[in-house]
Design a protein around this nucleic acid. Structure first.
Length: 559
RNA sequence: GCCCCCAUAGCUCAGUGGAUAGAGCGUCGGCCUCCGGAGCCGAAAGCGCAGGUUCGAGUCCUGCUGGGGGUACCA
């Protein structure tokens, strides 16, 4: 159980006991929340229950706090519980308990920090889902690493997670893609086939056409334009999918499922849902189009399902796709990771859920803000259509997966990221990922050095943890014990960036410990203390590796 | 016009309604004779403006100013 929850229980018991003893009146006790004081001298945890109870109990907060502390049950975890004006109850964790906390970290290993918010329930995280009409560009990189990190955090929080890429292989964009490829393909044979302004202007379409030319020759020229466009569209899609898989792989991401939008129509699911919705009277025909009457569920407007040209609109796909997720595949929860461009669409999703008879709370739309790319001090605009793109592959090959992931995960989701390509290339102390990885490498180095100086690998396992008690050791131990709270918070808020800030904090705490406490001593009299400290270093290294893994960033043994 | 997000130190950003608002970079001043100085210690420096709610507001509400995004029978 989280330390915070243990303390909350102790306080709850104390309040009841105080009431039973007549030291507190009967009143509605507010939910007991345990917080972390900003200032460490106020202790490790604090409760504001006394201030919150002042009004209902009609008592001075200070007196309430004193009554609570008086009835606080004994517990190993608590060293002291102090009352401070205006009514804070401050807890300090027991040094002995903290020191032995190392044993928990050792036994849990790379599972340490896990919490059980999910209780095994299933959660699908759908992310990237960029149109397969070209290589993944840097605009999708934030989506990619955020979605993956959220998936990792949710797994650590007890959810059974499935990662999915939704392939928009239906609709007009695919048609435009196929037409563009057809013209580039003809151009490759020297034919005059100029692009329209609506076509994809990017150079990569030329590469794609040449690739087809090399592999397939001129056989598509012999088909009718319609047949050729169809065939080239399918072939081009396959090739682009290979590009996308490669980029995703470079970022260290694995998808469990690549879901085809087209399959929603080919497999008859869309028709089936339309029949159901019509039967329920949830659609209406107006202006030649068929609408889903979301205004019946509180929306300020209805949504077009089938356009007046007879083609389904994108909302139709969303309806069928989410029906498939929740009803056919039965996910308890779904998270769609969308850029801020889709904020309007996101607001309409709850109505879609209601129209399908589903609880909107089961669907989270995780909105993140833009990434602005800068090169040589100028913003670089990204657009597949204009052809001005910087691919994920280019950037990852230039600055590495770790830097890309770390930089893109070190901001809150709702803040804009300015990604300076020139700066990211500089692999120096200005790059925060190196600070973190350095700390891990330093710990690895300490353990290596220990084995060279007579502490056989693992021989410190029996080190006497009771010897740990230096303030810097206790601070480090307290920070290590925070991890479950950090993971819980990251999972609840779908905000992996808090892991980054935790790591920076932990690194600083470790460096302070390293400064104050010599781990490997040449004095034989300190051998036992060294073994205890080596256990602490190994536990800290484990926590670093754990959190870096949650971020998808590697934890180097040396740099 | 309407809707959403943002505004915190010189710069880039954290900050679950709690106590003296933090970190990195930059600036200034210190620290390597046994573990990695890619590190550590210290200093200067901040919540856009005006109201409101609350025992308590950077955090919640309203208005204003400034920046970004969104407002299709396109996805």
């Amino acid at each position: 159980m989280l330390v915070r929850n243990q303390l909350a229980e102790l306080v709850a018991v104390a309040v009841s006991a105080a009431q039973a003893a007549g030291d507190l009146p009967a009143f509605d006790v507010p939910p007991i929340e345990i917080g972390r004081p900003k200032d460490p001298k106020h202790g490790d945890f604090s409760s504001t229950v006394a201030m919150q109870s002042a009004k209902p109990a009609r008592m001075a907060p200070l007196a309430i706090a004193q009554a609570v502390v008086k009835h606080l049950p004994q517990a190993d975890v608590v060293q002291t519980a102090d009352v401070l004006p205006p009514g804070f109850i401050n807890f300090r964790l027991s040094p002995r308990w903290l020191a032995h906390f190392v044993e928990s970290i050792e036994s849990e290993g790379m599972r340490y920090g896990n919490v059980d918010l999910g209780r095994g329930r299933t959660c699908q995280v759908e992310f990237i889902s960029a149109n397969p009409t070209g290589p993944l560009h840097m605009g999708s990189a934030r989506n990619a690493v955020l979605g993956d990190a959220v998936a990792r955090v949710l797994e650590a929080a007890g959810w059974t997670v499935q990662r999915e890429y939704y392939l928009n292989d239906a609709g007009t964009q695919m048609r435009t893609f196929a037409e563009t490829l057809y013209r580039r393909y003809k151009q490759a044979f020297g034919e005059d086939a100029p692009l329209d302004p609506t076509h994809y202007q990017g150079e990569y379409m030329i590469d794609l056409a040449r690739q087809v030319q090399a592999a397939e020759g001129d056989r598509f020229l012999k088909l009718s334009p319609e047949e050729a466009i169809d065939a080239l569209g399918r072939l081009g899609l396959e090739i682009v999918m290979q590009w996308i898989r490669h980029s995703v792989d470079l970022l260290g991401i694995r998808f469990d499922c690549w879901f085809s939008e087209k399959s929603l129509y080919d497999d008859g699911l869309f028709d089936k849902i339309m029949t159901t919705l019509r039967g329920q009277g949830q659609t209406a025909t107006r202006d030649g189009a068929e609408w889903l009457l979301t205004s019946n569920f509180g929306a300020d407007r209805d949504e077009v399902l089938i356009r007046s040209n007879g083609q389904p609109g994108y909302y139709a796909s969303d309806v069928a796709y989410h029906y498939d997720k929740f009803v056919l595949r039965g996910f308890d929860r779904v998270i769609d990771v969308w850029s801020v461009d889709h904020q309007n669409q996101a607001r309409r999703m709850p109505f879609l859920m209601k129209a399908l008879g589903l609880d909107p709370a089961r669907l989270d739309i995780l909105i993140y803000d833009l990434v602005r790319l800068y090169r040589d001090g100028k913003e670089v605009k990204l657009s597949k259509r204009s052809g001005d793109i910087i691919t994920i592959d280019e950037v990852v090959e230039e600055v590495g997966k770790d830097a890309v992931r770390f930089l893109l995960l070190s901001r809150a989701n709702q803040s804009v990221i300015d990604f300076d390509l020139n700066l990211a290339v500089q692999q120096n102390e200005e790059n925060p990922v190196f600070y973190i990885q350095y700390a891990h490498a330093r710990m690895a180095s300490i353990l290596r050095t220990a084995t060279e100086r007579g502490f056989a690998a693992g021989s410190w396992a029996g080190g006497n943890l009771d010897l740990l008690g230096h303030p810097s050791e206790l601070t480090l131990l307290g920070k290590l014990a925070e991890l479950p709270e950090v993971i819980e918070k990251a999972a609840l808020q779908l905000a992996p960036h808090s892991l980054v800030f935790y790591l920076q904090d932990l690194a600083a705490t470790f460096h302070a410990f390293y400064r104050d406490c010599r781990v490997i001593s040449s004095d034989p009299a300190d051998a036992e203390l060294s073994r205890a400290r080596l256990r602490l270093v190994a536990a800290t290294k484990n926590v670093f590796a754990r959190v870096l893994t949650l971020l998808g960033v590697s934890a180097p043994e040396s740099m």
